[in-house]
Design a protein around this nucleic acid. Structure first.
Lengths: 184, 184
DNA sequence: CTCAAATTAGAGTGTACAATCAAAATTCAA
DNA sequence: TTGAATTTTGATTGTACACTCTAATTTGAG
């Protein structure tokens, strides 16, 4: 943990470099050497501030997920449309994170189970939000089928996100908004 | 390329070992050493039969994709339901392949662009099949909106597949069949 | 049976990687 | 200003990896 100003600035440079690299060259390409070169820091300095390479990747991804979390205050007033738009914002504004998110989730590249758990929680949280919004919109649905519907909507969104991750030209937002028709 | 019986048997053992490992420990865990140990083959023998580690992974995945290709004869008579069931079969009968499929698609770990292209083609082919089946079912839809619908249905299925890859307990088939309701 | 071709073996090469360490340089509170 | 704590440095370690090479062994067609 950095205590002097110099250390704090170095830490920020390392985090920036890691964020950039994850987006540009993926998880595999984000090596310690690459991070240190980009951050203009020597290896020893890196290990003065971080425990491991894994820890810095973990921080970048965790921070990015937290940053795009819709309605952190959880006011419980969002509509389904709001949530879909929040998801679209997540994918289009942070395509990098979305891609890394998928990579980490699938590959299990990080031994740290914490992140896998965090991703799982993040997903469940999203399902719950959609479920609540669906119930507010159509109370007749009932818990069960609202949960079912929420799961399917999210699957569609993540399937489209997956497609967008593979194909840059894919019109994600337009396709994503069509899920609203099925709930109307 | 194996020519003697011994070589043919060895080749098969290597392919089996690779297939098993990809499913058990993922792309990263499937090292040359692991493959050779599992296949009970020395490294030199491996390279007598395969050009590289990449080539054996490529073959396993390609063969698996081909094996689960729905309706290879392309009779053009499948219903949307048939196609959904074929997809469910793909995911539930070959969960390993489905997982590797996602890993390779996302990670770009293999330099060989051929596989990426093959996956892309595989997807487009599926979209086209769904589009045709949707048109047969409801000709009034028209090309445009049938294509749109096909894309969204496939996204939902792949999103659910992704979910199932992360969570073994996820009831994939049940959720997958609900997409049929939206087309009815 | 013969022998050329195929197969097997396994020590060895080179490379990339994350991580360590001790010493020098610097920061900043008192 | 002082000096203990922090930060920086870069040479170094150890490990894991894909892959090569040469020599011994096995195979099977003629």
């Amino acid at each position: 943990m950095a205590r002097y100003q110099a250390g704090i600035r170095t830490e920020a440079r390392i985090l920036d470099a890691t964020r950039q690299l994850l987006g540009e060259v993926g998880l595999d390409g984000t090596t310690l050497k690459a991070i240190c070169e980009r951050a203009e820091v020597r290896v020893g300095s890196f290990y003065n501030l971080f425990d491991s390479k894994e820890s810095v990747v973990l921080r970048v991804v965790s921070e990015a997920i937290a940053a795009v979390d819709p309605d952190p205050a959880h006011l419980g007033t969002e509509s389904v449309e709001d949530l879909v738009e929040a998801y679209i914002a997540f994918i289009t504004k942070e395509p990098t994170v979305a891609k890394i998110y998928v990579q980490i989730a699938v590959s299990g590249a990080l031994t740290n189970g914490e992140l896998h758990h965090r991703i799982q929680r993040h997903h469940e949280q999203r399902v719950a939000r959609f479920q609540e919004a669906l119930l507010r919109q159509s109370p007749v649905l009932g818990q069960q089928s609202a949960a079912e519907k929420a799961e399917v909507i999210l699957a569609t969104l993540s399937g489209l996100a997956f497609r967008a991750a593979l194909d840059d030209g894919f019109a994600f937002a337009e396709h994503a908004r069509t899920v609203l028709n099925t709930t109307a």
